[in-house]
Deep mutational scan, measured.
Amino acid sequence: VDNKFNKEQQNAFYEILHLPNLNEEQRNAFIQSLKDDPSQSANLLAEAKKLNDAQA
C-alpha cells in the first residue's frame, strides 16, 4: 500500500479489498478513487459497504 496513506486510509483500503460481494470492476473503481483522493477514504468505505450489502 502506498505510504502516503494514513492508518484510517489503509484500513479503508484493506476493508474495500475484502468486501465479499463487490465484483472486480467495482472493487477496482473504489481502490482507484481511494488512491486519487485518500482524504475521501471514510466516504468511499461507506459507499463500498452499502454496495456490498445491496449485492449480498
Rank of each mutant, 00 (worst) to 15 (best):
V1P: 13
V1Q: 08
V1M: 13
V1L: 14
V1N: 04
D2M: 09
D2Y: 02
D2K: 00
D2H: 04
D2F: 02
N3W: 01
N3T: 06
N3C: 07
N3R: 01
K4M: 15
K4D: 14
K4V: 14
K4I: 11
K4L: 06
K4S: 08
F5W: 07
F5M: 03
F5K: 01
F5S: 01
F5P: 14
N6T: 04
N6G: 04
N6D: 12
N6L: 02
N6Q: 01
K7V: 08
K7E: 11
K7N: 13
K7I: 11
K7R: 04
K7Q: 13
E8L: 02
E8A: 01
E8R: 01
E8V: 00
E8N: 02
E8P: 03
Q9W: 11
Q9L: 09
Q9E: 06
Q9H: 03
Q9F: 08
Q10F: 04
Q10P: 02
N11C: 13
N11S: 11
N11G: 13
N11L: 15
N11R: 11
N11I: 14
N11D: 10
A12T: 05
A12L: 06
A12M: 04
F13E: 05
F13D: 01
F13G: 03
F13K: 05
F13Y: 14
F13H: 11
F13C: 09
Y14A: 06
Y14H: 10
E15H: 13
E15P: 01
E15C: 15
E15S: 10
E15K: 05
E15Q: 05
I16V: 07
I16P: 00
I16A: 01
I16R: 00
L17Y: 13
L17F: 05
L17M: 11
L17N: 09
L17K: 12
L17A: 12
L17H: 06
L17G: 06
H18Y: 07
H18A: 12
H18Q: 14
L19N: 01
L19H: 02
L19T: 01
P20R: 06
P20A: 03
P20Y: 06
P20I: 09
N21W: 15
N21H: 07
N21Y: 06
N21I: 02
N21Q: 09
L22K: 00
L22R: 00
L22P: 00
L22W: 00
L22C: 00
L22I: 12
L22H: 00
N23E: 05
N23F: 14
N23H: 15
N23D: 07
N23S: 03
N23M: 15
N23V: 08
E24R: 04
E24H: 08
E24M: 09
E24A: 10
E24L: 08
E25G: 10
E25Q: 14
E25D: 13
E25H: 12
E25A: 13
E25S: 09
E25Y: 13
Q26A: 06
Q26Y: 03
Q26L: 04
Q26I: 06
Q26M: 06
Q26V: 03
Q26C: 07
R27E: 01
R27M: 08
R27D: 00
N28F: 14
N28M: 05
N28K: 11
N28T: 04
N28V: 06
N28W: 07
A29K: 13
A29V: 08
A29E: 06
A29Q: 11
A29N: 09
A29S: 07
F30T: 01
F30P: 00
F30E: 00
I31D: 01
I31M: 14
Q32W: 10
Q32C: 10
Q32K: 06
Q32M: 12
Q32D: 14
Q32L: 06
S33V: 09
S33E: 08
S33P: 02
S33I: 08
S33G: 11
S33K: 11
S33M: 10
L34V: 09
L34H: 00
L34S: 02
L34M: 05
L34A: 04
K35N: 12
K35H: 08
K35W: 07
D36C: 09
D36F: 08
D37V: 10
D37G: 09
D37M: 10
D37P: 00
P38V: 08
P38F: 04
P38E: 02
P38H: 10
P38A: 11
S39G: 12
S39T: 07
S39V: 09
S39Y: 09
S39W: 09
S39D: 10
Q40E: 13
Q40F: 07
Q40S: 09
S41G: 02
S41F: 15
S41K: 02
S41L: 08
A42Q: 11
A42N: 09
A42I: 10
N43M: 12
N43Y: 11
N43L: 12
N43A: 09
N43D: 09
N43G: 03
N43K: 14
L44P: 01
L44N: 03
L44H: 14
L45N: 02
L45R: 04
L45P: 00
L45A: 07
L45D: 01
L45W: 03
A46N: 10
A46Q: 13
A46E: 12
A46D: 15
A46I: 15
E47F: 09
A48N: 00
A48I: 02
A48G: 02
K49W: 06
K49E: 04
K49C: 08
K50G: 14
K50N: 12
K50E: 15
L51D: 05
L51G: 02
N52C: 03
N52H: 02
N52P: 01
N52S: 06
N52V: 03
D53T: 09
D53S: 11
D53K: 13
D53N: 13
A54E: 15
A54I: 15
A54N: 08
A54Q: 15
A54T: 15
A54C: 12
A54R: 08
Q55F: 11
Q55N: 13
Q55G: 15
Q55R: 01
Q55T: 07
Q55I: 14
A56V: 07
A56R: 01
A56Y: 12
A56C: 13
A56N: 15
A56I: 13
A56E: 15
A56H: 09
